[in-house]
Amino acid sequence: MNTLKITIAAFIFLGCVTAGAVEKTEINFAFIGATDGNAYDGVAQGIHEANLQGRFLGQNYTLHEFSADNMDAIDPGVFIALIVATNADDVRQAGNRFKDHAVLNVAVHDDALRNECSSNLLHVIPSGRMLADAEAQWLQKSPDAGVTASGWHPDFVKFAARDLNKRFKKRFSRPMDQYAWAGWAAVKMTSDSVARKDLTDPAGLLQYLKTGLSFDGQKGLDMDFRDTGQLRQLLLMVDPAGDLVGEAPVRGVVAPDDVDSLGLASCYN
């Protein structure tokens, strides 16, 4: 909060909003995965947007890329959190190596990772079981063959999803898919927490993400994490032609806000 006041004072004093007007808090993310994929683009979008907020609050966000076979190069003291976009083994390994850090999984649907209820793995991308449950709910409503669930769709417009899709497409000239959304969301929930709570230490951030998060992921819900480490979220239903046909929880089958009807709701069930 002090940082905010100093920032405001500096704005008044200088009479202008310039990036260099205030001392910056540097916030660094480690990204493990391919830099030519959608998840990476989503993370980059998130960093860009975090800096749009950070310019008002004196925070500067930077992304550092690593390959999964070179986790030794990651200096834990530098990073606020890690984002992994490869496979279950890498997610698990990063979780074990960087116990004090939030390890944000933005690409792996693997159910076993959730069932392990690890203390520092946070799964932004939906689990396989969540997707399967959504598809089962859809089948109860209409026997359309081949409708699949996804964490995001480029034609989703509600809850200002339209704006996010537009921004992403403008920047990368391709539609935002669920991996890009998860990458964006991983950064956004962190930058929101940094801005609100002045959290700049990895352990404090991890604790807040697990217990205090109330995140606007442009899917209309206040999102938070289950004790399995899975992000509660709305899913989108896509027909075989790739068109958006609905949302899950599927209205008429379960209550529209019953997001825990999708996937393993708790470690203790």
């Binding site: 704005f11 009479g15 909003v17 947007e49 008002f56 609050l57 442009q218």
Partner: peptide
């Protein structure tokens, strides 16, 4: 998306608070 109220002063058009 940035979750802020930006207070703009008129006529200077400078932001005096976020």
């Amino acid at each position: 998306s940035t979750n802020m109220l930006h207070v703009i002063q008129v006529p200077e058009h400078t932001i005096v608070a976020n």
